[in-house]
Computed example of a mutant assay.
Amino acid sequence: MKEATKPVAWVVGGSKGLGVMVAKGLAQDGYRIVINYRRSVEPAYKLANELEQIGVETLVVQGDVSLVEDVKRMSAEVLSRWGRIDALVCAAGPFTFKRTPLIEFSDATWREMVDGNLSGVFYLVRELLPTMRRQGHGRIITFGFPEVESSPAWPGYGPYAAAKAGLASLTRTMAAEEAPHGITVNMVVPGDIRDPYKEAPIAKARGQRDPRTPIGRSGTGEDIARVVRFLAHPDSDMITGAVIPITGGLTY
C-alpha cells in the first residue's frame, strides 16, 4: 500500500485498557496508529514502541479529550502529520467505580463523566469529520455499556449512564447525517471486562471461569478489537447506526 494512501486510525485512549488491543489489531490491518494519552505517558510510548518494532508508523499525542482546546491541538497535529483520518475509535471515557446515589455526585464529577464520555466525542468529530467528508470515507466507533440503546436505569452510576445514553443517540444521529458522505458511525458495547483481561488476548481468558458473564468466561480486549476491526473495514459500509453488544450475554 502506498504511504500516501495508507489509512490512519486514531484510537482515543489507546495507551491503556481496551484501546490497547484495538490499536494492535488495527495496526495488523495496515493502519498507521495515533495514540493519545492524558497522563499515562509511559504506557503510551511503550505501546508505540511495540508497534514500531513491527514496522507500524505511530504518532503519540498528549491531551484530554474533554477539553476542546486539547482536541483542537491534537487533531491539528494528526492532520498536519498525515493529512488524513480514516478511523476514529473513541475508547476513552472516565468511570466512577464506587456506587453512589445521584444526588451525592459533585458538580465536578458530573462534568467529568459528561465531558469525558459525551462532549469529548463531539469535540473530536467536529474537528475530524470535514477531513473524512473530503476523503469520501471514514469510520467512527464509540463505546457504550450493556443495553445503553434503551436508556436503562443504572442506579449508582447515573452521570456515566446518562452520558453514554446520550452518546448512543449521538452515534445514531451522526450515522444518519454522515451516511451520504461514505462515513459510518457505530457503537460497540463491552461487557464487564476487568484487569487483567482488558489488554489481553482471548486465549488468556479461555478456561478461566467468570460467574458474572453468562457465556462463562470474561471478555477481553481482543474480543472488542475483533469487532472494531470488522467495523473499520472498507467493506463494512452497510453497517451504520448499530449498537453491537460484545458482552457474553451480560445485562445490567
Rank of each mutant, 00 (worst) to 15 (best):
A165P: 07
D115Y: 09
F122V: 15
K2V: 14
M21I: 11
E112C: 04
I54G: 03
A200P: 03
Q28Y: 09
V20H: 02
K204T: 12
M187H: 06
A92V: 07
R39L: 12
E222N: 01
I35Y: 07
I140K: 05
S75C: 09
M74Y: 03
M238D: 11
V228R: 00
I239H: 02
V114Q: 02
Y157Q: 10
F122P: 01
I239K: 00
G241N: 01
P180C: 10
R111C: 02
K24Y: 08
T240F: 07
F105D: 00
Y31T: 12
P155G: 09
G166K: 04
F122W: 14
G19I: 10
T5Y: 14
D237L: 14
A153I: 11
P155S: 12
D235N: 08
S80F: 11
A108H: 07
G248D: 04
G55T: 14
A76F: 11
V65T: 14
K16D: 06
R229G: 00
K98C: 01
D192T: 10
P245K: 02
Y157C: 03
V188I: 15
R212F: 06
E149T: 09
Y197M: 10
I183E: 01
V78W: 03
R84D: 00
M113H: 02
G13A: 02
Y160S: 04
A179G: 09
L47C: 09
L102S: 11
D64F: 08
I54H: 10
H181E: 11
E3G: 04
A9W: 07
D70F: 08
P245N: 03
R229T: 03
E127A: 06
S151L: 12
P190Y: 07
G182W: 09
S106A: 04
R226S: 05
S119L: 10
V8T: 09
G17C: 03
I140L: 10
I103R: 12
I140R: 05
R111D: 07
N186T: 09
G19Y: 06
V121S: 01
Q208I: 15
T5A: 12
K204C: 02
S40T: 14
G216T: 06
V188D: 00
I244H: 00
C90K: 00
T173V: 14
G166L: 11
G116L: 09
P155W: 13
L47I: 14
P152T: 13
G25F: 07
R217W: 05
E50Y: 10
I183S: 01
V243F: 04
K6W: 06
V65L: 10
G116V: 10
T247K: 03
K46Y: 10
T131K: 09
T58I: 15
S75V: 13
